[in-house]
């Protein structure tokens, strides 16, 4: 029987839970990647060990293709694992997770191909690989070196599975919309059944209908809110508003409303907020 999309998630959750990870739920603010969840961004700072796994819905407005392209989406899912400090056998652990999904190492060509990662808005960078499974990129592997402009020690490793890619591979589908989410009591439910229409709607919104003027205002309001909350040392809500700035910026970008020079200025503004949040968190880190 084909492993469904939700089986894949459940299997990964069980696998990493069995290896000592806290399994958390998605964070409820729009963001471009699982890295931006406070469960990663804030927790990789400081010295407290942290092992976590969670599914993260990710939004990248410019990647939308009105559901015409079988591989590109403006909203998709990542499965994120963060281990701090990075264990020595992390590659083997990762390969083990693929085997738990029925992807046997004997049957495939698995490669770790250089891919270093940098997020200018988060002031974060790391080195690592993208993992190729018979030529398909299914996972990003990053050893974080800096976050919020701060050097990290100990080093965290982040393993980010592209759930749709993985599911297409496992289910042998050529379109993301054909992925079987679940063979439910009422029959097959596909990814397309759940997300195709909203994908199209969001593309219209992102590319055409999002109000540039209101977005600009929203950005400024969120930036002001973030700064004020940092002044009150309220790191978590402050960081939410930093994320809102980031997503608003992405929407403005998709609307084609940002020139090259403005772009840099926006990125710097967001980075400033991220850095302040990181510093404020470090001043009062949460102990686990």
């Amino acid at each position: 029987m084909t492993r469904s999309f939700q089986d894949i998630i459940l299997t990964l959750q069980t696998y990493w839970s069995d290896r000592g990870c806290v399994v958390l739920q998605p964070y409820d603010t729009e963001k471009g990647a699982g890295t931006m969840s406070p469960h990663t961004f804030l927790r990789v700072l400081g010295t407290t060990p942290w092992n976590v796994a969670y599914v993260e819905p990710s939004r990248r407005p410019t990647d939308g293709r009105y559901a015409d392209n079988p591989n590109r989406l403006q909203h998709y899912f990542q499965f994120q694992v963060v281990l701090k400090p990075s264990p020595f056998d992390i590659q083997d652990l990762y390969i083990g997770s693929l085997e738990s999904l029925g992807i046997s190492r004997q049957d495939h060509d698995i490669r770790f191909v250089e891919d270093n990662w940098e997020s200018p808005t988060l002031g974060a960078w790391g080195v690592g690989w993208e993992v190729w499974l018979d030529g398909m990129e299914v996972t990003q592997f990053t050893y974080f070196q800096q976050c919020g402009g701060l050097d990290l020690n100990p080093i965290s490793v982040e393993v980010t599975y592209g759930l749709e890619r993985l599911a297409m591979f496992i289910q042998n589908k050529t379109s993301v919309y054909d992925i079987i989410w679940k063979e439910s009591r009422n029959g097959l439910v596909t990814y397309g059944d759940i997300y195709r229409q909203s994908e199209v709607d969001y593309c219209h919104y992102n590319f055409t209908h999002a109000s540039v003027d209101r977005l600009v205002t929203q950005f400024e309001l969120a930036e002001a809110e973030c700064n004020e909350l940092i002044a009150h040392k309220l790191v978590s809500p402050a960081y939410d508003f930093c994320l809102k700035c980031s997503h608003t910026f992405n929407l403005l970008d998709a609307r084609g409303a940002i020139s090259v020079t403005e772009r840099m200025a926006y990125i710097l503004r967001i980075r400033k907020l991220a850095k302040k949040c990181a510093e404020a968190y470090l001043a009062h880190p949460v102990e686990v």
């Binding site: 590109r72 190492r105 049957d107 495939h108 018979d134 030529g135 398909m136």
Partner: peptide
């Protein structure tokens, strides 16, 4: 490829083909 055996060659070939297909669709 770097991990080819007689048993997996066809699987690897098919996998790579579908990746390239997706790229060329783009």
């Amino acid at each position: 490829a770097d991990s080819v055996t007689p048993a997996n060659e066809a699987i690897i070939k098919r996998g790579n083909h579908s990746v390239l297909r997706a790229r060329l669709e783009d």
